[in-house]
Design a protein around this nucleic acid. Structure first.
Length: 416
DNA sequence: TCTGGGGTCCTAGGACCC
DNA sequence: TCTGGGGTCCTAGGACCC
């Protein structure tokens, strides 16, 4: 049996831990650049705020009632780590599925429901994050059980004998993990609108009409495990860093500095995972919502001469891309990003007979990383990123809370 | 005025091989 | 009039996830 532990309204709950005045109030957390609502407290959901709804499309009378925060991923990432530490202490095998969800292998746990109740309370007490736990024989059923737990008392078990129970008949098919809006609509055309109907559909029909992924979901709903617990995280295939700018950027120099900043960050992520990249991609785009202005969406991928994790070599490639006709003069770009692909462990890279398989100065990079780890991200950097004050391309974050758990100057103060 | 960021997997079709 | 069969690899696009 597997358990899925999920933080309730996770980002909103993280904000509430350190800002008690937000408790009981309708609260939304916005995406980067203060664009969309990506987390909502129960009270905000009750007011009708939708997931990923742009804030400016929330009706003014609703918006007036909302407490609003900019996304504070530094805080959420740290809170997530605390929860994972509790989980790893409780069971040997944990798969961290996302920032607020983990799968647990409950093999060997005698009374699983009692265990889940205890664990749930411990997480709440030790971190302040309310959470729910779903238990089921497959990941898909554990996900579904988690959803049912949220409607009930925080823990729900979909044991084998219950897989045919009314819970699945009462669950819209679109709420099943792996069924998105597009599939849900097409399934409805086949008369399948509930989880129970999907479970009972013909595997052949689903395979032919929707492909292997959804057929696997059907099997999982029947209690046949098709998705293993991945407690050893597989290596990334791609690392991407991109941002929407607070204001459109026309200036080539500013665009170059923005892209260099993203690339520096991507290379840090690459090294932190012990990988090298063999290809670099760069893109930029104009505001797709402004159809009356000139649109341009340049996108280029280059193979690197040799795989590397050296920021300087990557920046040299970026410079080369930008020296061509990548950007157009006079165009206002709204978003840009870089991605590193064809990732590999350096010891697995094939070289040729006469030259090293990978290139780059590892000692220099690890020294740089050590400095930034110790003194804060960006303390030592590269001229290409720009250095004179706040960049013109910075994102909008007008309601950002403090880094309560990761910055010594921003710790919460308790008075009594 | 204002619309996120970062991932994965699968499939169909084209190019190419013998 | 007549034009095979079987395979791999790559890529773009679509679907999904949080």
């Amino acid at each position: 049996m597997l358990a899925l532990v999920d933080g309730n309204n996770f980002y909103a709950s993280c904000e509430r831990v350190f800002q008690p005045e937000l408790r009981g109030r309708p609260l939304v957390v916005l995406s980067n650049n203060d664009g969309c609502c990506i987390a909502r407290s129960d009270e905000a959901k009750a007011l009708g705020v939708k997931m990923a709804q742009p804030l400016h499309l929330v009706p003014p009378q609703v918006r007036r009632q909302l407490a609003i925060r900019s996304a504070n991923f530094t805080l959420y990432g740290d809170m997530s780590g605390r929860i994972v530490a509790i989980l790893r202490d409780a069971v040997p095998r944990v798969e961290v599925y996302s920032i607020d969800e983990s799968f647990l292998d409950l093999t060997g746990v005698p009374d699983q429901e009692a265990f889940a109740h205890t664990l749930r309370q411990r997480i709440h007490r030790w971190t302040g994050i309310p959470n729910c736990i779903g238990i089921g024989p497959t990941k898909t059923l554990a996900k579904l059980a988690n959803r049912l737990a949220k409607q009930g008392n925080g823990v729900f078990c979909l044991a084998d004998e219950h897989i045919s129970n009314p819970a699945l008949a009462g669950t819209p098919v679109g709420d099943v993990w792996g069924v998105g809006p597009h599939y849900a609509e097409r399934l409805a055309g086949h008369g399948i609108t509930t989880a129970a109907q999907l479970r009972d559909a013909s595997i052949q029909d689903i395979l032919a009409g929707f492909g292997a992924t959804l057929a696997r979901t059907v099997r999982e709903l029947r209690g046949q495990s098709c998705l293993a617990l991945e407690d050893i995280e597989p290596d990334r295939q791609q690392i991407r860093v991109s941002r929407t700018f607070g204001d459109p950027v026309e200036d080539r120099l500013a665009m170059g500095q923005a892209l260099a900043t993203f690339l520096v960050r991507a290379a840090e992520k690459l090294r932190s995972r012990g990988l090298v990249a063999a290809a670099l991609g760069v893109f930029a785009s104009t505001d797709r919502f402004k159809s009356n202005t000139p649109q341009h969406h340049p996108n280029r991928v280059v193979a690197l001469p040799r795989p590397t994790a050296d920021t300087r070599l990557l920046l040299a490639q970026l410079r080369q891309i930008l020296s061509g006709r990548f950007l157009r003069a006079g165009v206002h770009y709204r978003k840009a990003g870089v991605w590193l692909t064809d990732l590999a462990r350096p010891q697995h890279v094939h070289g040729d007979l006469y030259s090293p398989a990978t290139v780059g100065n590892e000692r220099l990079m690890s020294t740089l990383d050590a400095i930034n780890r110790r003194f804060g991200r960006g303390r030592a950097g590269f001229g290409a990123s720009g250095w004179k004050g706040a960049p013109v391309w910075k994102m909008r974050q007008e309601m950002l809370s403090r880094r309560y758990t990761t910055c010594i100057d921003e710790l919460p103060v308790v008075r009594c």
